[in-house]
Computed example of a mutant assay.
Amino acid sequence: MRISYPLALCGLISRGLGHTTLSDETLRNLPSPGNDFNIQHGSLLAPLLIPRVPGTPGSTAALTHFVNFFQHTLPDWTLTFQNSTATTPLSGTNKIPFVNLIATRDPPWATAGQAGRLALVAHYDSKIEPEGFIGATDSAAPCAMIMHAARSIDAALTKKWDTMEAEGIGSQGFEGVEEHTGVQILLLDGEEAFQTWTHTDSLYGARSLAEEWEHTLNPAVSTYRTPLDSIDLFVLLDLLGAKNPRVPSYFKTTHWAYQRMAQVEERLRALGQFKSSSNFPSKRTGSERRAERMFLPEGGKQENARWLGGYVEDDHLPFMERGVDILHLIASPFPHVWHTIDDDGEHLDIDTVEDWARLLTAFVAEWMDLEGFMEKKQSSEKAKRSRETDRTEL
């Protein structure tokens, strides 16, 4: 991505839905990533901490990591690939392959073109220079955050939709918008420029996918005319994982969504769930709460404030130009390691990575109305009694 001059604000009027606020208990019981973000052997993050230049073995390895994750961990998600090729300033007449991975989970009764979707998006490629560049914040860590969120809400989605089907909602053709909402993950290739950022040397995968989806028609009786129309909100994560991030609210049209996420952040912090916070229980030295620096500090931003949508060029641009609503989660200022060889695993702040994953999970759970369906942690005594009961029954 690069910084550019502001573009005209694009996007439809927000299709904000009446999502159920998560209870304090649910927020306290959000799944922990455990060691999944360990930079040496974490199952989600470590395989991505390699150079991932499009068309190279590293890119293939990252894509294989994603596919294995969904096939083995989240088999109810539908995987599709969108392929394209293009020449680059460094390839001469040779065409470089770009592969976008799309993972989708819709309600089981939703037919093609019927479900609106929350799209969680990050690019998985890395820059060709400097040699050996990994791009941990840019965007290995964001990809791992999205994987964690998907895994964390998957069982709750199944439980919710099974309950709804048992009540006859899907089979009776219920037409409520909430009942036709799914989740889609876009892991995009070719975001980085090969030489110098221009409108043709950047966003290779995003440009190809947005153009293809613009001209792909759903069945004539569909609620949404094209796959682009079905995206209710395009949540793009980029340059996340460094300590003390600050993410502004870039778009007036989606400030309502930014506010929802900011409110969730405030509640998680108040409940002592943010590991990077000075008020996290293991870090507190007294009874008084310290002032905290918010990841999302502009929840109270007013309409007459400055909106920088489009100022930072990124994978959202081809979608925004086609009317898709964008929530851009990118740190400003950029991390100090941006586009340097130091953007590696050792320079990630893992507490911050975990907090972003926790916040994203909560936001998605609220969007999908999963209150009451998320699993609850058992107390150690209750878990012990449960194990003893199991042994007795056996």
Rank of each mutant, 00 (worst) to 15 (best):
G92M: 11
G92A: 14
T93P: 10
T93V: 15
N94D: 12
K95A: 15
K95N: 12
I96Y: 04
P97M: 12
P97Y: 11
P97R: 10
F98D: 02
F98P: 00
F98Q: 01
F98M: 03
V99P: 00
N100V: 00
N100Y: 05
N100S: 01
N100W: 03
L101D: 04
L101E: 07
I102S: 04
I102L: 07
I102D: 02
I102N: 10
A103M: 08
A103V: 06
A103F: 07
T104C: 10
T104A: 09
T104G: 07
T104Y: 04
T104H: 03
T104K: 14
R105N: 12
R105T: 10
D106V: 15
D106A: 13
D106N: 15
P107R: 13
P107W: 11
P107M: 13
P107C: 14
P107S: 15
P108E: 09
P108T: 09
P108S: 09
W109M: 13
W109R: 11
A110P: 03
T111N: 04
T111Q: 11
G113M: 01
Q114I: 06
A115M: 04
G116Q: 03
R117L: 01
R117A: 04
R117W: 00
L118C: 05
L118N: 05
L120Y: 02
L120A: 00
L120D: 01
V121L: 01
A122G: 05
A122T: 06
H123W: 03
H123V: 02
Y124L: 11
Y124A: 10
Y124E: 07
D125F: 08
S126W: 06
S126D: 10
K127C: 09
K127S: 10
K127N: 04
K127E: 09
I128E: 10
I128V: 14
E129V: 06
E129Q: 13
E129L: 10
E129W: 04
E129R: 14
P130N: 13
P130I: 11
E131L: 09
E131V: 10
E131K: 15
E131I: 15
G132P: 13
G132A: 15
G132R: 14
G132V: 10
F133R: 11
I134F: 04
G135C: 06
